[in-house]
Amino acid sequence: MKKNKTMEGIVPWVLPLLLLILWQIASSSEWIPSRLFPAPTVIVQTFIEELQSGILLHHLGISTYRALVGLLIGGGIGFILGLINGLFPFAGKFFDSTIQMIRNVPHLALIPLIIIWLGIGETAKIFLVSLGVLFPIYVNTYHGIRTVDRGLIEMGRVYGLRSWELFRKIILPGALPSIFVGLRYALGLMWLTLIVAETIASDSGIGYMAMNAREFMKTDVIILSIIIYALLGKLADVLAKVIEEKTLKWHPSYAKQK
């Protein structure tokens, strides 16, 4: 039985590993042009070099900074708007349809305008990321708050819970599962927006690193950048999931089997 378990653990890794080995052989024996498809070992080497020169960390730092600041600003605004509109029906009536209308504009389509307005500096990229994450967080916060079980709110009132306490003990926890859905969706959009923004208009960041490498045909750096983006995306998702599991440990679907 135990052997079976380890086998099951290995099986999904077999194919990727084979592909990697194939790639290595094909590239190093020049079956495919190594200039276009540098071998995995070359990429690892590039990784180490870029790491040692400090260039990688420089760009990585800038990209992470943009992502986080954008998430904080956009997510914060989306969360607060969602709260206000969810808690106060009048605000919901007043704001929601307008916000839904703006939401229909693909934010990446704004890039040319934003370059004209804000140039290619930090503000432009942070603005774009903020705009990208704002809507999923807004929509899910709003929805989460509006769908909190009315019965629980009525129960809270019977037991004398007033405004702030009612919010803290009943409304917010009730809306959290939905808010997390929005957060994870927003994290995906956050990286996507950043990749596009940094690739099109930037002089720093991972996206710029890749674009810059293109001019010198350094495919190894380009592939390295792509891998780093993928890892960052995965890391963000894993972090969100861990926080979600911790916060929602009361939820039947997160209950630990004892």
Partner: peptide, 20 residues
């Protein structure tokens, strides 16, 4: 329906009764 708060433990739910 019992209307217990799913995010509070059993004893915390009972304490809601002493909220005021």
């Amino acid at each position: 329906e019992s209307r217990l708060l799913p995010w509070m433990t059993v004893v915390e739910n009972v304490e809601i009764g002493l909220n005021d």
